[in-house]
Design a protein around this nucleic acid. Structure first.
Lengths: 228, 228
DNA sequence: ACGATGATTTGAACGTGTTCAACTTGTGAG
DNA sequence: CTCACAAGTTGAACACGTTCAAATCATCGT
């Protein structure tokens, strides 16, 4: 079973050290030359271990990328704190969160294509809908819960409850657009964020109109119905 | 079931015959054992040619899948005709088109995951946004243009112009959901279609309300702004 | 009929991710 | 301190997609 030392000291065991060494080497090579051009042999050589050893800690190359993704998400979660501390308007908070995500992820734009390629496979543990990535997904939704909760937005309770997940889905759409965006300085993605967020804001506030609220309620009902 | 060997007729030169032979063999093996488990060596052996010969006609395994996708889309385009001939209501036409797509694609549900995995890579020619697949994409949008044009829907001209592409995007969303749907008999995807289409219908008709029309116009403006 | 030229075909070889049986090292009970 | 067992480590070997120089074949002008 798990040793006591693993509980008290997470990074000092021999195994843990090797694990960290392999991971950091992999992340560095991914960033330097991209995922596709980084071979498992290169990672092992650069880290000074054998190929088999890398597989002892990470059961596939994809799992190394999973770690990479977690790394990015942690950066995002931290960077978001200052944004959410300084703005109380819903549109401002949402734009800020998405902008920060863009900043954090910008260095890896080229690499991202490969990532989403494997993430699109429903059987892959990297799929954003997979059970394995539920913790990461939940953490991400939590950010949007915070965006909504700390804002000036007044919504029907049912809609407010589903909104964070909807915003997470919206972010996935932004990411999809971003992956395909080859405009200079990501001009188009920034345009999309800056112009779509106010629209969402207006759309949400329109739910006061009775005719619109009816549709909104039905949308919420649909979402609940199709959840697994 | 529709035959996969329909491709194998109309072959004149030796090269064409070989090409068709390799393609039909590949499609058969894909359907029999899935994309991942079908090796290029197996395709070549089964077709009675060498591996290199397969690569002479199809520059990669992905290109064989591309042919597979074209095959599916042709089936869909044909099957859709009867639906569009018999229903004049917008919601009915849209539901019909999506339902037919589901029927045509149902046999390949498991295989579809692998397909969308490679389709998600922006650098892949199989990406629905790639220049290479523009003809296929255009043909698909054309179906939705037909859905809108032949319906009872009355919309502001600007919105009506963008709607077919938006519906295509909506279908991509349905497909994404479908790929991840493991419910029995695709219950959840069918639910999604049957309930989301009436919502879209209502939402579109809401554009008569001035407050809503403003947002709708801005959405159209945004879409035009971010197009490449 | 006969080369010549381009189209077609071959299969060995390469680089990749991954596996695995064997080996070495660390740990803790007696 | 010893030593058995678990933890960690190794690198050769496998299957796969892909490449390519060489071999074979088909077609055409003469």
């Amino acid at each position: 079973m798990t040793t006591l030392t693993a509980v008290t000291d997470s990074a000092t065991t021999k195994g843990e050290q090797t694990r960290e060494l392999i991971l950091s080497t992999a992340l560095r090579l991914f960033a330097e030359q991209g995922y596709g051009k980084t071979t498992m042999r290169a990672i092992a050589t650069e880290a000074g271990v054998s190929v088999g050893n890398a597989y002892y800690y990470f059961s596939s190359k994809e799992h190394l990328m999973q770690a990479y993704y977690d790394h990015l998400q942690n950066e995002h979660r931290e960077a978001v704190q200052t944004v959410l501390a300084g703005d109380k308007s819903f549109a401002g908070r949402l734009t800020g969160v998405l902008r920060v995500w863009l900043d954090v992820s910008a260095p890896y734009h080229e690499f991202a294509g490969t990532f989403f390629k494997t993430a699109a496979d429903p059987k892959s543990p990297l799929s954003p809908f997979s059970p394995e990535s539920q913790p990461a997904r939940e953490a991400s939704v939590e950010i949007f819960r915070h965006v909504v909760a700390g804002s000036d937005l007044k919504l029907p309770a049912e809609l407010a409850a589903e909104l964070p997940e909807l915003l997470w889905l919206f972010q996935m759409g932004i990411v999809l657009f971003w992956v395909h965006d080859d405009s200079a300085d990501l001009r188009r993605t920034k345009l999309l964020i800056d112009r779509s967020v106010p629209l969402i804001d207006r759309l949400l506030r329109l739910t006061r109109i009775p005719g619109v609220r009816g549709v909104a309620n039905d949308i919420v009902g649909l979402i609940r119905a199709i959840k697994p």
